[in-house]
Simulated assay, not measured.
Amino acid sequence: MRRRFVAPARGDQTAAGFAHPLFGDLSVHRDLIDSPEWPDIDTLNARLPLPDRCFVAQDEALAADGLHYELRVARGRIATRPCNWHDLFNALVWARYPVLKAALNARQCLHIARNGTQRRDSAQQALTQFDESGVIVRVRDAALIQAWDRHDWSTFFQGQAEHWRRGDLAIAAVVGHALMEQALLPERRLVGKCLVVLGEMPEESVARIVAAIRAGEALQDPGGLRPLPLAGIPGWHPRQEAAFYAQADYFRPLREGRVYPPPLC
C-alpha cells in the first residue's frame, strides 16, 4: 500500500533548502515560504493579488456550497487550507502563472460539464498531473531531446551537460505545486511531468503552453507527458557520476511502445 506523503513541519525548513533551482520561480515571494510564521488568507490575498480570483479558507462553511473545487475556482474562489504547504505552493504558482493556471481550470471545467463530477476522463487526469507535477522544458533544437525519447538518461544529462549549461536545454517553468511540496524532503528524488516547447524565451514557452491547453492541443492524455528525473539535471543533485544515472529504479528505461509527442513550436 502506497503511503500518503506527509510534508515536514514549517519549523524544520531552512532558507538554504529553498535555494534549490526547483524554487527559482518563487524567489520574489521567498519570505512567504521561509519565514517562521505561516501567511494567513488575508496576507496571501494582499501579497498575491489576482485579477479575477481570490484565496478563501477551506473550511466547513466553504464546503457547504456543495461546489466541486474546480467549479468554485472558476467562480473566483480558490479554496486554500491554512498552514498547509501544498496549498501555499499552489497559491504561489497562481501568482506566478495566473494565465496558465486559469487555462488549466477552464479545461477542467469543460470536462466536468461533459462528464459530471463523478467520472474523470484521460484529459482530466493529464490536466491534474501537470497541475500537480508539471514542468515546462524549453529546447533550442529538437534533436536535443532524441536521447530523452529513448530514455537514454546518461546521454540526455551527462552527454549534453554543456547544452544544459548554455541554456539550449532549460527548465522554462516549474508548475507543479505538489512537486514543490515533495522537494521539502531533500533526499526525495523527484520526477516532473513535462511539456516541451521549441523556443528561446521562458515567457514565450509558457505562453505557447497556455495556447495549447486552451485549444485542447496538449494534455489530452497522461501519456503525452514526458517524465523528467529532475535530479539528473546538471547541477541539481550532488551525485551525478555514471553510477548515479545507471540507477534504473529512478532513471527508468523506456516502456515498450511508449512514444512521446514532438515539442510544441
Rank of each mutant, 00 (worst) to 15 (best):
M1E: 13
R4G: 05
F5D: 00
A7W: 08
R10D: 10
Q13E: 12
T14G: 11
A15Y: 01
A19T: 15
P21C: 13
L22C: 07
F23G: 04
L26V: 09
S27C: 02
D31A: 15
L32C: 05
L32M: 13
P36H: 10
W38L: 01
D40R: 07
D42H: 06
T43E: 13
L44N: 06
A46N: 03
A46M: 04
R47P: 02
P51S: 12
A57F: 09
Q58Y: 14
A61E: 14
A61Q: 15
L62P: 02
A63C: 04
A64G: 01
G66I: 07
G66Q: 13
L67N: 10
Y69P: 03
E70S: 03
V73K: 00
R75K: 14
A79P: 09
T80C: 04
N84A: 05
D87V: 13
F89G: 02
A91F: 02
A91S: 13
A91Y: 00
L92E: 01
A95S: 11
P98H: 03
P98I: 06
L100Q: 01
L104S: 10
N105L: 05
N105T: 15
C109G: 11
C109I: 08
H111C: 10
A113T: 13
A123M: 05
A123N: 04
L127H: 04
Q129P: 07
F130T: 12
S133A: 04
V135I: 14
V135N: 07
V135G: 03
A142S: 14
A142I: 11
Q146Y: 02
A147V: 12
R150H: 02
W153C: 00
Q160T: 09
E162G: 08
H163R: 14
L169S: 05
A170T: 08
I171R: 08
I171S: 03
A173H: 05
V174T: 15
G176M: 06
H177L: 01
A178R: 10
L179N: 04
E181T: 09
L185N: 12
E187V: 09
R189F: 00
R189A: 10
G199V: 11
G199S: 09
M201K: 12
M201H: 14
P202I: 09
P202V: 04
S205P: 03
V206D: 02
V206S: 09
I209L: 15
E217Q: 08
L219M: 04
L219D: 00
P222K: 05
P227V: 02
P227T: 04
L228E: 02
P229S: 01
L230I: 12
A231W: 09
A231G: 08
P234I: 03
P234C: 04
W236E: 03
W236D: 11
Q240R: 07
E241Q: 09
E241N: 12
A242P: 04
A243R: 15
Q247S: 10
A248T: 15
F251D: 03
R255Q: 15
E256C: 01
E256H: 08
P262M: 06
P262E: 14
P262I: 05
P262Y: 03
C265H: 10
